[in-house]
Amino acid sequence: MTASQPGSRIVSVAHHQPTRVLTNDDLAALVDTSDAWIRSRVGIATRHVADADESVADMATVAAAKSLARAGADAADVDLVIVATCTAVDRMPSVAATVAARLGVPAAAVFDLNAACAGFTYALATADLAVRGGSARTALVVGVDKMSDFLDWQDRTTCVIFGDGAGAAVVTATEAAGPDRIGPAVWGSLPERGSAITLGTSGPTGPPALFRQDGHVVYRWAMTSLAPVARRACEAAGLDPSELAGVVTHQANLRIIEAVTSKIGATNAVIARDVVDSGNTSAASVPLALSKLVERAEVPQGAPVLLLGFGAGLSFAAQVVGCP
Rank of each mutant, 00 (worst) to 15 (best):
Q5F: 01
Q5L: 04
G7C: 05
R9E: 15
H16E: 12
H16L: 02
Q17H: 12
P18K: 05
V21K: 12
T23Q: 10
A28V: 14
D32K: 10
H48M: 03
V49L: 08
A57Q: 00
M59V: 03
S67W: 03
A71Y: 02
A73M: 07
D74S: 10
V78M: 12
V83W: 12
V83A: 13
C86K: 03
A88N: 14
D90W: 04
R91N: 14
M92W: 06
A97P: 01
T98N: 02
A100D: 11
R102L: 06
A109C: 01
F111S: 04
L113E: 03
A118M: 09
L129V: 14
A136I: 06
A136Q: 07
A139R: 00
D145E: 09
D152R: 02
C159E: 04
C159S: 06
I161N: 05
G163I: 08
R181T: 10
I182M: 02
I182R: 00
L190W: 09
L190Y: 10
E192V: 12
E192N: 10
A196T: 11
A196P: 06
S202T: 09
S202D: 13
S202Y: 00
L210D: 09
R212N: 10
R220A: 15
W221L: 15
S225Q: 15
L226Q: 10
L226G: 11
A227S: 15
R231S: 00
C234P: 07
L239T: 14
D240M: 03
H250W: 03
Q251M: 09
A252P: 00
L254P: 02
A269N: 10
G279W: 06
T281H: 03
V286E: 15
A289K: 07
A289G: 13
L290H: 11
S291R: 09
K292D: 12
V294D: 10
E295A: 13
V299W: 05
P300W: 09
V305E: 05
V305Y: 02
A312Y: 04
V320R: 13
